[in-house]
Amino acid sequence: MLVHHLYSGGKDSSLAAWMLTRLGYDVELVTVSFGLLDNWRFARETAEKLGFDHKILYLPREMLEKAAEMAMEEGHPNNAIQFIHERALEALASLPEVERVSDGTRRDDRVPILDLPKARSLEDRFNVAYIRPLLGLGYKTIKELTERLFVIEMGESEHLEKGDYEVELRHLLREKGIDPLEIFPKSHYQSRVMGWKGL
Rank of each mutant, 00 (worst) to 15 (best):
P117R: 10
P117Q: 11
I84T: 01
P77V: 11
A119H: 06
A93N: 06
G75S: 02
I113E: 09
N78A: 04
R87A: 14
H76A: 00
S121V: 10
D109I: 12
E74C: 03
S94I: 12
T105D: 04
Q82V: 01
N78Y: 10
A93D: 12
P117N: 14
R110W: 04
S121Q: 10
L89S: 03
A80E: 03
I84M: 07
I84D: 05
G104V: 15
D103G: 13
L92W: 04
H85W: 09
N78G: 09
P96E: 10
K118S: 14
L89H: 05
R120T: 14
V101T: 11
D124N: 15
D103E: 13
G75V: 02
A119S: 08
R87G: 05
L116G: 06
L122S: 03
S102H: 10
A88Q: 06
S102N: 13
F83H: 00
P96C: 09
D115C: 10
L114H: 09
D109A: 11
H76F: 03
V101Y: 03
A80T: 07
L89M: 06
Q82T: 01
S94F: 04
R120E: 05
H76M: 01
P117K: 14
D103R: 04
I113G: 08
P117H: 14
E86A: 06
